[in-house]
Design a protein around this nucleic acid. Structure first.
Lengths: 214, 214, 214, 214
DNA sequence: CATGAATGAGATTTCATTCAT
DNA sequence: AATGAATGAAATCTCATTCAT
C-alpha cells in the first residue's frame, strides 16, 4: 500500500532508518485526528506505520513526543510561504488577500496539514505548552500577515475603517472552521464544494469590507 | 421525579437529590471540555459533582451515557427558541438575521452551552453516533433556519443571488469558531471583545450580501 | 492459610483496609528475598498478598514504595530494644555482650526481619538512598551500641587493648553473615544448628578478646 | 583459537579478538555487581565491553550464559592455590591458618574476584543451579581446607576441642562479609583499613581457639 | 441510596534477542 | 565477524466498573 514503486512483497524486517520518523508522524497524525490523542494506542500507530511497537521508541521518546513532532514539523515550514507571497505582491490589497487566502487554502486543505487545527483544538487542554506554542508561532504569525494587508488597505482607502485584528479573525474563521469540520462532521453533513465555499467567503467578505464606490 | 408524587410541596433539602443527574452532567461537561473525554476520570467527575464514584453509576449506565446526556440535554431545548424567533418576525431579513444571531449568541456564548462545539469536535471520532445525532438534530436544523431567512431575503431582492446553504455556513462559522477558540486557545491568544467580534461579523457579512442600492 | 481463625471460605471481595498495607509488605518481602527486587513482579506480590494488582496501588505509590516501607517499618523499631538492654545492664561487659547478641539473635533470626540484610545487600546498587539510610540508621546505630560495650570493657581491664570499632565489626559479622546465608545458600549448604553457631562464635570471640588472667 | 592455527606468531592486533569473551565477562561483572543481574541491560554490557549488542551473542548464548561464565571462570582456578598451600605446609596450624587466610585475602580482596560473593548472594534466588554449583564447588571445598587445618590443630592439642565445621564457618565469615560489604555499603559506611580488619580477626580468632598455655 | 475499596482489562514502555546489512 | 535497527513478550501502572458494607 505504501512502501515504494516495486510492487508487492510484504517484507517483514525492513531497515528504513531514514524515513521512519516521518512515516511514524504521518501514521500518528491519521490516528490522532480520527480518534483523538488519548484514544490512539501506540500499537495502532505502530501498525499504521507498518512497524512494531518497539520501533516507535527508537525514534521518539514517548507518545507525547510524536504528537509534538507532528505538529511542529508539519506546520511551521508553511508559514514562510505566506510571508513571501505578501512581500512580493504588487496591486490592490483585495487582490493580495485573495491570492494569499487561495494559496493558503490550496496548500492546507488538500494536504494532511489540514488535520492540525482539529487536533490542537481537541488536545489543547492536555498539552497547554503545545497550544501556547501553536498560538504564538502559528496563529498570531499568520494573523499578523493578514492584519498588515487589511491595515494597508484601510490606509489606502481601499477598505472601510475597522479594527484590523478582528477583521483578520473573521477572514480566517471560515477557513479554520472548514478544516475542523472536515475531520469532525463531514461524513454526516451534506456534501459541499469546498472551493466554492472559499470563493463565496472571499466574495462576501471582500464585498463587505470594501469602501463603496459611488 | 420519583420521591414525592404529590408534586405540591417542594421541600428544599430534597432538591439536591432531585438535581443529582444535572449536577453530574455539569461537572462532567466542565471536565470533558478541559481535558477531553478520554482524559477525564470518573473519579474527577465524582469529585467535581460532590458525590462518590459509585453514585455516578446510580444515575448513568457508564461514562459514555454521561457524555450523551450532557450533549442532548443541553443543546436541543435551545433550538426551538430560535425557530420561534424566526416565525414571529416582522421586518427586513437583515433585521431578522441580526436578531437571530445576536439571540443565539447571547444564549450560547454566555452559557455553559458554549462548550459543546469544542467537545463534539474533539470527540466526534470516538462517538460517531453522537456526532451524527448532533449533525442531524442541531447543525442542520439551525442551519435550515438561517437558510430560510437568506433565501427569502434573496427572493425579496434584499440580498444578492447566491447559494443560501453556503452562505448560511459562512454566517455561522465565526460564531462556532469563537466558541471553539474560547475553550482551546483563549488563554494564550490576545484578549478580544467577543461582542464587538460578533457585531463586526454581522456588519461585514450583511454588508457583503446586500444588494447594493444605487 | 492466612486470613483468620474462622476456617475455610475463600472470599473474593474482601474489605480489609486496616491490614492491607502490612499484608502487602510481608508478601513483598517474601518475594523480594526469594527472587530479588527486579525479578519480583507486582502480579506476584498481589497474588501472594491475596489481592489484585490494582489494590497494591491503592496503598503504595509504586513498587519502590513497597520496598522502602518494608525496610523501614520492619527494622527500625527493633533497635531501641537493644539500646534499652544496654542501658539497664549491670554486671560484666562480657555478660552484657552475650546478652545483647543473644537477644538480637533471637528477635532477628527467627523473625521475617532476618531477610532484610540479604535484601539490602542485593539491591543496594539500585537503591542508594535506601542503602545509605540503612547504613546510617541501622548499621552504625547498632554498631555504636557494641562499640560502647567493648570500649568500656577495655577501660575496665576486662578486655585487651584494641580498636573497638573493628572489634565490633568482627562481633557482628558472623551474625549478619548467617542471616544472609540463610536466604542465599542454605538449601544447598549442609544443615547446621544456628544456635550452636552463635554460641560458639561468642565463646571464641569473647575468649579471644579477654585479658588473660594469670 | 581459530584464526592462525600455527600458534607460533602472536600477532598483537589479533589479541583483542581473542580476548573478547573475557572482556565481555569483566564488563558484565562490573555491571552485575553495581546494578544486579536483572537491572543490567545487555546494551550496557556491550558498551562497557566496547562492542555492539549483536557481538555479545556471537560469544554467549544469552545473558544467563555470561553470568555463569563470569562466576565459573573467575573463581574455580583460585581454589587449587589454596589446596597447594595447605599440602606443602610445615609448622604450627596457627601459622598455616594465618598463611592461608592472608593468602586468600590477598588474592580475593584486591582482585575483581571479590565481587562474586555479593553477586551470588544477590542472584541465588534466580539462579539456583548456579548457587548450588557455587556451594558445592567453592564454598564447601574451601571450607574443607580450613576444617582439616582446624581438626589437625585440635588433634595436636594446639586448639581447644570444638566442632571444626562451625569454627571454619566462623573463620571465614568476616572475610566474606567484608567482600560483600565492599560492594554494598562501603561508600556510606566509615572508612576502615581492610588489612587491619583481617589482622585483628586472626588475632582474636586464633587467640580464642588456642588452648591456653599455663 | 450512598460509599469507596477492590477488581482486572488494557494502556504505555522496556529490553533481551533476532537478523538484514 | 560485526553491527545496530527492528521485534514483541512481558513488565508496570491506570482507571472504568463492581459490589460488600
Amino acid at each position: 500500500m505504501s512502501v515504494s514503486s516495486s510492487g508487492a512483497e510484504p517484507v517483514k524486517w525492513q531497515r528504513r532508518k531514514e524515513n521512519r520518523p516521518e512515516e511514524i508522524i504521518l501514521a500518528a497524525l491519521d490516528l490522532f485526528v480520527e480518534k483523538g490523542y488519548a484514544a490512539t494506542r501506540m500499537l495502532d500507530v505502530a501498525r499504521q506505520a507498518g512497524v512494531s511497537k518497539g520501533t516507535l521508541y527508537l525514534y521518539f521518546e514517548n507518545k507525547e513526543a510524536i504528537f509534538r513532532a507532528a505538529v511542529e514539523q508539519l506546520i511551521v515550514p508553511r508559514i514562510s510561504q505566506l510571508e513571501a507571497l505578501q512581500q512580493s505582491h504588487q496591486g490592490s490589497y483585495e487582490a493580495l488577500i485573495k491570492k494569499m487566502i487561495m494559496g493558503w487554502w490550496q496548500s492546507v486543505w488538500h494536504s494532511r496539514l489540514s488535520v492540525v487545527p482539529k487536533l490542537l483544538i481537541s488536545e489543547s487542554g492536555n498539552f497547554p505548552e503545545l497550544a501556547q506554542y501553536f498560538t504564538e508561532h502559528v496563529v498570531k504569525r499568520v494573523r499578523y500577515i493578514f492584519v498588515q494587508a487589511i491595515e494597508q488597505g484601510i490606509k489606502e482607502k481601499e477598505f472601510i475603517e475597522q479594527d484590523a485584528v478582528t477583521t483578520a479573525r473573521l477572514l480566517m474563521a471560515p477557513i479554520i472552521q472548514a478544516a475542523v469540520w472536515k475531520y469532525s462532521f463531514k461524513v454526516f453533513d451534506d456534501e459541499q464544494n469546498p472551493d466554492e465555499y472559499i470563493r463565496q467567503h472571499l466574495h462576501i467578505f471582500l464585498n463587505g469590507i470594501q469602501r463603496k464606490k459611488h
